[in-house]
Amino acid sequence: MIEIKNVVKKYGDKIALDNVNFTIGDGEIFAFIGRNGAGKTTLIKAITGIHDFDEGDILINGKSIKKEPVDCKKEMAYVPDNPELYENMRAIDFVNFICDMYEVPIKTRERNIKKYAEMFDLTNNMNDTIESFSHGMKQKVALISALTHEPKFLVMDEPFVGLDPKAVADVKNVMREMVEKGGIVFFSTHILEVAERLCSKVAIIQKGKLMRVGSMKEVKGDKGLEKVFLELVEK
């Protein structure tokens, strides 16, 4: 379970997250939607321990990301919106490096790297340097490295950007697989149709404030997610 409790984040005088509160339960695919600059990436970076926040706390399975960041991060994987990876590394070395950080046993990494490299059609490119890859290929490397260490919580910032249709379908399947095993998938997206079809819960953020949060049914009602979203952000 991920508990976000009264989180406040300020950049100087600007409030990026204004007392954000919600909980993500085990086995949930949770969509986080909002306009550009609404605070989605800021919250994602706070959850993953990349950025500090000024007030409140975030608990990962009861542990505070502020007080026990290393323990919290062990159970989590993060896929950034813009896959800025180590360009000078070969894809296999990058995935290996991430596995080293998570201390993944060699047999687990062998099995998972093979599985996900095949899934994302990168098997023949794993020995190439990342700088030679397209945006989509880099995104796939980021996904392989995030999935190989078998995280309980997968946190992704706009994961479908730059992926080909087959890879998008594969990512959706991976998400479903993860939550079936009791894991959590939390991601931001601008593709509301995907969120509507894939997610059990959703939160809408506007100017750092949580406008609505709940199950997909509760949030969209009979109107459809896009209509609800537009009504909220245009207020």
Partner: peptide
Amino acid sequence: LGKNQKEGKIKAHGVMRA
């Protein structure tokens, strides 16, 4: 790109060494 399409070798290192 490299001429030989390979999967590459998988090696494990300690955190500090990596």
